[in-house]
Amino acid sequence: MNELINKVKYLVSQNEIELQVNDDLQGFFSLPVFIKCYEYTDGSISETDRLIYERILKKIDVVKHLYVYYSNDLSIKSTEILLSERSTNRLALNLLHLTILKSDLKYLNSLLKMSSFKSIPLSDEITNLITDVKEWLFSKNEHN
């Protein structure tokens, strides 16, 4: 598990997000800002952040696109601008970290769906890490 966490943290250091502020969309939920603020700690996230991730997972699973700005409850996109490749990769790393720490298949399931996005593909390193985490998680579940 620690080896996988270290791989995630290394890839995070290689995937810095540059934030571009759009003054016309102040007051809306900025997905890149939320993604960048994720802390790679012991895996405890606030209830608010957990609910936001649940809504993001739903966007991945149902809409199959992620946009830069949403309404504050994430129910409506506020722009047609798709999430950048760097932000998408960073989100994948956040979800990988949560998958490892929580051993939760819902994060992995959404990651697998993200890896098939045609509009913004994940990096090869992240795709390979998703496979490693999937194998680790299924192996762990077999032994439980």
Rank of each mutant, 00 (worst) to 15 (best):
A92F: 09
I76V: 14
N109W: 07
R90L: 12
Y53L: 12
H97W: 08
M1D: 11
V68P: 00
T127R: 06
L4Y: 06
S30R: 04
K59S: 07
R55N: 15
E16C: 02
S75Y: 08
L129D: 00
I5W: 03
G27P: 03
V12C: 02
D61K: 11
V33E: 15
F28I: 02
K58V: 09
L4H: 10
I120G: 02
Y10W: 05
Q14L: 08
I120K: 08
D73C: 10
N2T: 10
S116K: 09
L98N: 01
E16L: 03
L83F: 14
N2K: 10
N109S: 12
S84H: 13
I126T: 01
L112R: 06
E47H: 05
S119G: 01
L31I: 12
T131Y: 10
T41Y: 05
V21H: 08
N89I: 01
K134L: 09
D23C: 04
L101C: 06
H143K: 14
D23Q: 11
H143G: 05
V62T: 14
L122Q: 01
L51P: 04
L31Q: 02
I45G: 00
T79Y: 08
Y107W: 07
G27I: 09
H143C: 10
T88A: 15
Q20A: 08
F29Q: 06
S44I: 09
D73I: 10
L98V: 04
I56K: 07
E3A: 12
S46H: 03
D23T: 12
S75T: 09
K58H: 11
E85V: 13
K9G: 01
V133S: 00
Y69S: 02
S116I: 04
V63S: 14
S119I: 07
K113L: 07
Y40T: 06
S123D: 06
I81S: 13
S30K: 07
K118R: 07
D24G: 05
S110A: 13
I52Y: 14
K77N: 11
N141Y: 05
T48A: 08
E3C: 06
L98Q: 04
N22M: 06
R55T: 13
K102E: 09
L98M: 11
D132P: 04
E142N: 13
S13C: 03
T79P: 07
